[in-house]
Design a protein around this nucleic acid. Structure first.
Length: 254
DNA sequence: GAGTCGTGGAA
DNA sequence: TTTCCAAGACT
């Protein structure tokens, strides 16, 4: 849920989710479409599908227990470098570098004296975090959490609160006089308004709201551009977020 | 490595 | 209003 999604938006959804499905086995026992429906408007609904698939794998192959091993975690659908290590470290207390967008920003500033991190590279980013991670296991766990939290609360992307920063006296960016970001800024994100992503969201919204298959003509009402509708629906079918056909109608997956 | 994939709150 | 961007993953 936390992937590319603000923490404050995740917390209430997580609590409701865990109240309904307290264990991987509980989630694995329902159709994947129920996970997509419960995901509601949290965004990136393939995460719901992946989470359900991961629950099935955990139930069938790991005895219902989320694995400790980073390699086994990485093998789960939707679990990448960040999530695998976050679980191993914060749930199980193992020693691994955990690198999210906050950590990348703190390292860029405090260590590299740059206003912003460069493009993500798991190899480089993990190595950079490993280099400053305490050797002691328990200290490393605290350090992972602390650096991430520092980036989320103090060393923020827009208006960093440097005067309140606990490591301001050893921050390389501060020592260098807060140099501006060098080089061409990579384009943030393609415009959402009018995008295929928006159409996908609108189609999925229809399917979530219905307990019976939705007809093609009903889907046709959500967006004026037919070609774009077709593209979005095909994409949803390909991703497994939607099942069905023109003849049977479309619905969330079983 | 570059593109794609949702949503919504804050500046 | 527009832009930014948020505990990323996958192709």
């Amino acid at each position: 849920m936390l992937q590319q999604t603000p923490v404050v938006r995740v917390i209430p959804r997580l609590e409701a989710w865990l109240a309904r499905w307290p264990t991987p086995a509980a989630l694995a026992a329902v159709p994947s479409g129920e996970a997509v429906r419960a995901w509601d408007r949290l965004g990136y609904p393939r995460r719901a599908l992946n989470l359900h698939a991961a629950a099935v794998t955990i139930t069938e192959r790991h005895g219902g227990v989320v694995p400790h091993d980073v390699g086994e975690l990485l093998a789960l659908p939707g679990v990448g470098d960040y999530t695998a290590r976050a679980i191993a470290v914060f749930a199980y207390g193992h020693r691994h570098p955990v690198v999210d967008t906050n950590v990348r920003r703190v390292i860029a500033r405090a260590i590299d004296a740059r206003a912003e991190p460069g493009p993500p590279s798991s190899r480089r980013d993990l190595a950079a975090m490993e280099a400053i991670l305490p050797p002691d296991v328990e200290e490393s766990t605290v350090a992972n959490a602390a650096i991430m939290e520092l980036g989320a609360v103090v060393c923020t992307a827009r208006a960093p609160r440097c005067e309140d920063c606990p490591i301001r006296d050893l921050c390389a960016w501060r020592a260098a006089g807060y140099p501006e970001y060098l080089g061409a800024r990579q384009p943030v994100q393609k415009k959402f308004e009018g995008s295929d992503r928006q159409v996908r969201g609108l189609i999925l919204r229809e399917l979530r709201a219905s307990d019976v298959p939705v007809t093609r003509s009903e889907i046709d009402t959500v967006w004026p551009d037919a070609a774009q509708r077709e593209r979005a629906l095909l994409g949803l079918l390909t991703d497994g977020l939607v099942t069905g056909s023109v003849a049977d109608g479309y619905q969330l997956p079983g």
